[in-house]
Design a protein around this nucleic acid. Structure first.
Lengths: 345, 345
DNA sequence: TTTTTTTGTTTAAACGATTAAGCAGGTTGC
DNA sequence: GCAACCTGCTTAATCGTTTAAACAAAAAAA
C-alpha cells in the first residue's frame, strides 16, 4: 500500500493538486475553493488517510521544524533529563528534536553539527564542549540560529541559557563553612571551559570571604577521558595532603559517582570522615546511605528557556541577543550536616 | 551566505547539474565524465564548501537514513543507555536516530509514530507499551520496517530483540532461595505486557520448583502512573501480611527506586530486614549502602542487535522474521547475601 | 566514404509539496 | 453594450537532488 500523495487525492477528486493543497492547508477561504469540492477533497483525504510528506514540505519551505540538540552524553542523567524537557517543549511547538552525543569531544561535535546541518535542522541547542569555539563562530557566520545551553563562552557574543555556577559554588562553599567545615577541597574537570572555571572560582571566593586560606592541593582537576583512574589518585592525594580536607565539592555528577565508589571502598564515612556537596542530580543522591547535598540546577527552566529562545529566534532572526543565568538551589542533606565537633559557630 | 547547491557549482563550472551530481557521487567512471572537468567540479565544490541537501536527496531516493526510536522515557537510565547504544550503532552505519518518549502511553506512542512516519523515517525500533498492538499491526500492514526492542507481543509475528525475562526472574528467585530466603515477594507493574508477565511467571516457577508455596499477597502489582504512592502501600501491605516476606524482587528500575526510598524511610535494613533483587541498572545499585543485586540485561547487545536487525531488513525487506531472546545475568551483591540464620543450606 | 561505436555532455522528468499567475465564464456597474 | 470585477479553477515554476534518455562530435570499423 503506497502512501497517498496530493496527486492521488487530486486524481480521485478530479481536480488539480493546487486545490487539494489549498483545502488541506485551510486556505480554502483566501483561495476561494468551492464548498462542495472542498468537502469532497477532505473526504477523500480522510479515506486515503493522507499524511503530508514532510520532506517535500520542508524542501519547498526551507523549514524542517526540527532542532538539533547536541549534548555530551545522553546516558548521563543530567543530559537525559535536559533532553526530555527539550523534547517535550519542542513537541508542544510542533518541532522534532534530533539528539546527538559528542562525549565532550570537539571533533565528534563537529561531525554532529555537519550531519544535522545537512539534514537542514532549523536551529541548534548546544551544550558546548572544550575547543568548540570555532563551531560557534561557524554557526554565527553561516547565520544558523542556535542557543548555547548550560555552558557558554563569555568572549563570544551568543544567545545562551546557563546556570550561575559561580554563585552555586559560592553557596556550596559557604554552606560547608557554616556547617563547620574549614578544610574544603574541590574536584573538577581539567578544562578551560568557563562554566567549570566558574565553579572553581565560586568555591575559592567562598573560602576567601570567610577567611580560609586556599591550598593548591585542595583543587583536584582530572581529565574527563581518564576520570575513572584519576579520581582515585586525586582522592588519595587530597586525603594524604598536609592539609587533609574534611569536606569536598564535586563539580560534576560523573566525578561524584566515581569518587563515591572509591570512598565506599576506602570505607570512609560521609560526612564524618568527609563531607560532600556535589553538582548533578540523580536518584543516587537520594538513596545513598547518607543523602548527598547537591546543587540543584533548574533543569526544567533551562531546557524550556533554551527552546523558547531558539524558537523566538527562528521566528524573528533579527531580534537581539538573549542571555540568561539562572540560579541553582543548594539542596542540603546529610552529607554536609553540621559538624558535631564544630567549635567556631 | 546562502548554501551552495549543485546548480551553483554547475554554473561556476559552466556545465549541467547532472555532471556535478555524477562527479560528486563518484559516478564519473560509469558515466564517463572528462577527467579535467571532473577535477574542476571537485575543486569548485570544495571552494564553495558544498554540502548536499539531505532533504532533496531523500525526497528523490525515498530513503532518509533516519530511524525512529520510540521508548518510554529518555530520562530513565535504562532507556537512556539503550538510546545511546542505538545512536552510536546507527551513526556507524550512516543513520541518524530520532528518539521519542511515550511515557508508556499508547496514545502518545501513536502520535510519535505518525510524526515520524510523516518525516519519512526508514524504519523503527520500538519499545512497545501496553495497548500498542494496533500500532504494530499498522506498521506491518503499511509495510514499514520495524524491530521491537525489549518487549514484544508473542501473538504477533514480528522481528524482536528482547531479554529472556522468564529465565531472568527464575534465576533471581532461585538465587534468593539458595541464599536462604523463603518468603519472597515480587513487585511489578499492573500490565498484561508479555515481558512483565514473564517476569512474574519466572519468579513463580522458581518458587514452585523449590517447593515453596506462592501466596497471592506476595505479588504486588502497581500502576505505572501512580507508582509513587502505590509502591508505598504495596510495601506496607506486603510487610504486614501474615506471610511477611523476607526478600523482594522488583521487576523494574522505577519500582525499585521508589521502594528503596520508602524502605529507607521505614529504616528497614537491607538485606537483614528485607533482601532485594531488582531489574534495571544504574549507579544507585552500586552506591547504595548495601549494593543491590540486579538483573543485568545485555543492554549493549540488545541495542546493537536491534539496529542490526532493522538495517538488514531495510536492505532486504523480504528476509524472514528475526527474533532473539537474550539471556540476562544476575549480578549478586550484598542486598541478597546469604541469610546468616539460614537453616537449610 | 559511410556506418557504427564511443565519448562527453545536456535535457528533462521525477520525488511531493506550495503558490503566484493565468484563465475562463458569470456578475455587476455605468 | 462594454469594461471591470468575481468566482472557481488550472498551469507551471520552484525547492535540490538523481538519473534515464537524448544528442552531438569524434573515433573506429566497415
Amino acid at each position: 500500500m503506497k502512501k497517498a500523495s496530493l496527486k492521488d487525492i487530486a486524481q480521485q477528486a478530479g481536480v488539480s493538486t493546487a486545490l487539494v493543497s489549498y483545502v488541506l492547508n485551510g486556505k480554502e477561504k483566501e483561495t476561494r475553493v468551492g464548498e462542495a469540492i472542498a468537502e469532497k477533497i477532505r473526504q477523500i483525504a480522510k479515506e486515503l488517510n493522507y499524511q503530508p510528506n514532510h520532506l517535500a514540505k520542508s524542501l519547498r519551505s526551507g523549514k524542517t521544524y526540527t532542532i538539533g540538540l547536541i549534548i555530551a552524553d545522553i546516558s548521563n542523567p543530567f543530559f537525559a533529563n535536559i533532553a526530555r524537557v527539550v523534547e517535550d517543549e519542542a513537541k508542544k511547538n510542533g518541532y522534532t528534536v534530533i539528539i546527538g552525543s559528542c562525549d565532550e569531544h570537539a571533533e565528534k561535535s563537529w561531525d554532529l553539527l555537519n550531519v544535522l546541518i545537512n539534514r537542514q535542522v532549523d536551529g541548534f541547542i548546544i551544550v558546548s564542549c572544550e575547543g568548540s569555539e570555532s563551531q560557534v563562530h561557524y554557526l554565527k557566520e553561516r547565520n544558523i540560529p542556535f542557543v548555547l545551553l548550560d555552558r557558554h563562552f563569555p568572549e563570544i557574543q551568543t544567545d545562551f541559557v546557563a546556570t550561575n555556577n559561580y554563585k552555586a559554588s559560592y553557596d556550596a562553599g559557604v554552606h560547608l563553612i557554616q556547617s563547620g567545615y574549614s578544610k574544603i577541597g574541590i574536584m573538577a574537570y581539567k578544562s578551560n571551559m568557563y562554566h567549570m572555571e566558574e565553579r572553581v572560582r565560586g568555591y575559592k571566593h567562598a573560602l576567601r570571604d570567610n577567611h580560609i586560606e586556599f591550598h593548591d592541593s585542595w583543587l583536584k582537576e582530572v581529565h574527563f577521558e581518564t576520570m575513572d583512574s584519576e579520581v582515585r589518585t586525586a582522592i588519595d592525594e587530597i586525603l594524604a595532603s598536609g592539609q587533609r580536607v574534611d569536606a569536598m565539592i564535586f563539580a560534576t555528577y560523573g566525578l561524584a559517582i566515581n569518587a563515591l565508589k572509591y570512598i565506599n571502598e576506602l570505607r570512609l564515612k560521609v560526612p564524618s570522615d568527609l563531607a560532600i556537596v556535589s553538582y548533578g542530580q540523580a536518584e543516587v543522591f537520594d538513596l545513598y546511605y547518607c543523602p548527598i547535598t547537591y546543587v540543584q540546577q533548574p533543569l526544567e527552566m533551562l531546557g524550556k528557556t533554551a527552546v523558547e529562545f531558539l524558537l523566538t529566534k527562528l521566528k524573528n532572526p533579527e531580534e537581539g541577543v538573549k542571555q540568561i543565568l539562572m540560579e541553582a538551589r543548594l539542596i542540603a542533606r546529610e552529607s554536609s550536616k553540621a559538624k558535631p565537633t564544630a567549635v567556631g559557630r
